[in-house]
């Protein structure tokens, strides 16, 4: 039995907006197996970005448990969270968030700087990452010299550079035209297939979501349902293979609090 790479149990997040308490997450439970590619969908304000921030250790939950590769994350301090961001997860943002007036190469090197990778090795790994996203000929271009799709691919290379097990992408194609979006998704799929990197992405777009093997719908801070749309590539698939019609809806049980659990049929 393979352990889930991400195991979230009853996660809640409450924001204090002035006088009002905003319940962004009301008790989310979900698991992601190693090598999976999962899309999280839901209307805006459903809490999917909040969930992503929790998964990426950019934010801490109000309550609930989060196990990353079997280790409890929910009670890590700031330093522990920094370490996870540095070594275990790569993050891709909707708005790319590249440093302006800084070459693609230097942008990709940033996480490696904080990972303490020596200079020469850093350069080498950044070049490799950029080649992997098909930008081997754009190393010294600055963001304003690159198209949106290329900028997002630089951002993907940046998330790759520190060789994380998981890449989290928050609306990675949200600012891109269809063609560039497809290019970026192709990169994600390639990384997922060829390198076994677990990819979790948030999207509005059903076409984009279809690239994933599983779709999780979030609504009002709860997991609404989950749907298996493709084969898991590397994960233990012995249970999934028993499902009828290959690409069937995963049998999902929603408990009273809306917690999602995959149940072997």
């Amino acid at each position: 039995m393979i352990e889930p790479v991400i195991d979230v149990r009853d996660l809640t997040k409450v924001y204090q907006m002035g006088e009002v308490e905003v319940h962004a997450l009301r008790g989310v439970s979900m698991q992601v197996m190693p090598g999976e590619m999962v899309a999280i969908m839901g209307p805006s304000g459903s809490g999917k970005s909040t969930l992503m921030n929790m998964l990426g250790c950019l934010d801490t939950p109000t309550s609930g448990e989060y196990y990353l590769e079997g280790a409890a994350v929910s009670d890590l301090n700031d330093q522990g969270l920094t370490s996870i961001r540095r070594h275990k997860v790569g993050f891709v943002f909707q708005t790319y968030n590249l440093l302006s007036r800084t070459s693609a190469l230097a942008n990709v090197e940033i996480p490696l700087i904080y990972g303490g990778v020596p200079r020469r090795q850093r350069r080498q790994r950044a070049i490799e990452a950029l080649e992997m996203v098909g930008l081997g000929d754009r190393l010294h271009h600055q963001p304003n010299e690159l198209s949106g799709g290329e900028q997002q691919r630089v951002a993907v290379a940046r998330s790759l550079a520190s060789e994380p097990a998981i890449i989290l992408a928050d609306e990675p194609t949200g600012n891109l035209d269809t063609r560039s979006g497809k290019e970026v998704m192709a990169v994600f799929q390639q990384l997922n297939r060829e390198r076994g990197i677990t990819v979790i992405l948030v999207t509005h777009d059903p076409d984009i979501a279809r690239h994933a093997q599983r779709i999780i719908w979030v609504r009002d801070g709860l997991v609404e349902r989950a749907e298996q749309v493709g084969d898991r590539i590397l994960a233990d698939d012995s249970q999934g293979s028993e499902e009828d019609k290959g690409q069937a809806v995963a049998v999902a049980a929603l408990d009273a609090s809306g917690t999602f659990e995959e149940v072997a049929s």
Binding site: T82, R86, N97, S159, S162
Partner: peptide, 16 residues
């Protein structure tokens, strides 16, 4: 501010 946020997101600690 955004640069700081980005640096933190990709692994910069408080001390960095």
């Amino acid at each position: 501010t955004r640069e700081i946020g980005l640096r933190k997101a990709v692994g910069a600690g408080k001390s960095d």
